[in-house]
Computed example of a mutant assay.
Amino acid sequence: MFGSHQTAEALATFERALPAEATAEGREPVSRAAFLRVVSNELLELITYGPTYQRAVADNLRTALRMFKDGRGEEFAYWLDQTLDGAAALRGTRDAEHDAGETYVTATSWGVSYPFGGGKPGVTLNVYDWDDDVVNDMGGKGVLIRHPVHDGLWFADMAEAQGYALRYGLIKRYVREAAAA
């Protein structure tokens, strides 16, 4: 889609060109800020020309961008899902196998949590980020941005939720650095 030297300019162009949000029936509206967070946090290395560039992911994202810009919420949601599924498939299955004995940490700036309760068994996957630059409802700055695809998904148990988050690159295994001798 663009070279690494063009990343900031491309994201700024998306910011200016896209409407405030896209809506699709049966889903929460997706804000421009949330969509751009997905692009910068999860897809940037796959859509930037170079050794990690993946044409299929870039093509799907181009289509999602066009649908978002044209106000075609249903189609946007479909193509965003296709883009994220394609990116997850490229990560391979080596990291997708959850191990209860492992420690996991976030892999992007998205925060990830798994609250229990709420009157039903299982866990809900919460995926969120904070933006200090956006004016909030109280006139100050700072808003919580929820992931447009992964936030709010319900899983039977913690292992299933972590396996999903691992597959989509939201978390990664914690690896200790070797102690200096």
Rank of each mutant, 00 (worst) to 15 (best):
G169N: 03
A165G: 03
G118F: 07
H147G: 07
F14I: 07
Y168I: 05
R55D: 14
L166T: 02
L153V: 04
G140P: 03
D131L: 08
P115W: 00
G140L: 07
V135H: 10
G140A: 08
M67I: 07
Y78I: 11
G101N: 05
T48P: 06
G50V: 05
Y164R: 01
A24T: 01
V30A: 08
I47K: 00
A33P: 05
A10D: 12
G139R: 02
P51W: 08
D59K: 10
I171F: 00
A77E: 04
G86W: 01
T52N: 14
P19T: 02
G101Q: 08
L144D: 15
T93V: 14
L46D: 11
K172G: 11
E74N: 04
R146T: 12
D81C: 12
Q6L: 15
T63Y: 09
D70S: 09
E160K: 08
F2W: 12
R27D: 15
A107M: 03
M158F: 07
R37N: 14
M138H: 15
A10P: 09
V143G: 07
R146E: 15
G71E: 01
D132A: 12
G92Q: 02
R72A: 15
L44I: 10
P51Q: 11
T63N: 09
D133S: 15
L36M: 08
G86E: 12
Y168M: 09
Q54P: 10
L65W: 03
A34C: 04
V38E: 02
P29D: 06
V39L: 05
Y49N: 15
G92W: 02
E28I: 04
Y174N: 11
M158D: 09
A34S: 07
S113V: 03
I145G: 04
E21G: 01
E160P: 05
V38F: 03
G122E: 06
F76Y: 03
L170F: 08
Q162T: 01
K69P: 03
T108C: 08
F155S: 02
V38S: 03
Q162G: 03
F155M: 01
I47M: 03
P148Q: 06
T93A: 15
G101R: 06
T93P: 11
K120I: 11
R146I: 12
E45V: 13
L11H: 04
E75S: 12
A88R: 05
D95Y: 12
E25T: 13
E21Y: 05
V105F: 08
G119P: 04
T48I: 05
T52I: 12
T7V: 13
G26Y: 00
G140T: 01
W110C: 07
G152Y: 04
D85H: 12
E74H: 07
A178H: 14
D99Y: 00
Y168C: 03
A181M: 14
Q82V: 10
P148N: 10
A180T: 12
A161Q: 00
